[in-house]
Amino acid sequence: MALRRVLGLGRALGCRSCCSKHPLPPDFVEALRAVVGGPNVSTATVVREQHGHDESMHTCAPPDAVVWPQAVGQVQELAALCYRHRVPMVPFGTGTGLEGGVNAVQGGVCSDLSRMDAITELSLKDVSVLVEPAFPDEVMAGACSRFSGLELPAATTLLLELHGSRHGLAKQQRQAGTDASPGKEGFVVGLLSSPPCPTAPMVGHVGDSNFHCLTFNPQHPAAAQHVHAFSQCLGRRALAAGGTCTGEHGVGLGKRALLLEELGREGLDTLRRIKAALDPHNLMNPGKVL
């Protein structure tokens, strides 16, 4: 949400509609409260608006209610309740997507997963950990730091584990331009980001030098349209090179036309049949991708 505040997208898209086509009946809201508890259900306009958009410029489409489940069993109960009453359901993580994936275009219930942050399974043998959706990155960074005997800050950190001979590891370190410290096995590397862009907000992925420097004014419709046209052109260039239009943020609302160009009508029809088999009433985040 910080990026949206920096860019002023809330003001740029000020005409946000909070009207749902099918308002939830009061008894259904009470049923939601029975599953997750009263404090974990909200129908307040401001809360619904916060959950009706991501960092993209797609028009806000708020859900009718927002719930905060805290266990897998509650998520299952909520899904069963929505299925019985034919109410759309939309999951919400951090709202940082760029394809309108969280927009509740047909209303319904938004399940905010930010309170599900537990570790559910840890395997030292497989060097893997299974966590709930909202498990904080800073906790993971702190755990990796303690296990490897390092002094990394307990903050969101990108870690790479490099393997090879000591000479090979030193070469990889030089190629990556990183600050490395020896861990118990190999090297654990924390990549360092470049100074922020002095003229515009910048976000990015320091691991592959993929930065997004955002310089256009989203309050100008012409500028927004120009950026949209550029993104469509970029997607088609990717397709022409044998790649995919999906990019990092997948397909939600903005790339559906490009997905048709990529997969063709038969490909999309196949995906629709698979979705219909799993979601016969089209309740799971409807109006996206297909």
Rank of each mutant, 00 (worst) to 15 (best):
N103G: 04
M140T: 07
A154V: 09
L160G: 07
V203T: 15
H228V: 10
F211W: 11
F28G: 01
G37P: 08
F187C: 06
E161G: 11
H85D: 12
T178L: 14
T94K: 12
G108Y: 03
D269H: 07
K21F: 03
V67E: 02
V75W: 02
G164V: 13
P63Y: 00
L278A: 09
L192K: 14
L169S: 07
A170C: 08
D54Q: 04
A200R: 13
T59K: 11
D269K: 10
Q70C: 13
H51D: 04
D126A: 13
G107R: 00
F92C: 09
P88S: 10
G149M: 09
M284A: 08
R236L: 13
A155V: 14
H249E: 10
G247L: 09
Q106P: 01
S193C: 10
L234K: 05
L162P: 09
A79I: 13
S42K: 03
G8S: 09
R237W: 11
A241E: 14
E121F: 11
S128I: 10
L214R: 09
G242K: 05
V105F: 04
L113Y: 01
E55I: 02
V188D: 01
W68H: 01
G235R: 00
H51G: 01
A31H: 06
A31G: 10
E248M: 12
A170P: 01
P196Y: 09
M140C: 11
E266H: 13
Q225D: 12
R11A: 15
D117P: 02
Y83G: 11
W68L: 00
R146K: 05
F147H: 07
D64I: 03
K21Y: 06
A118F: 04
A143H: 00
A257I: 04
F230E: 10
I119V: 15
K288N: 07
Q50F: 08
R86A: 14
V127N: 12
L278T: 06
S123P: 07
S194Q: 12
L124P: 10
L234M: 13
E185I: 12
P62Q: 04
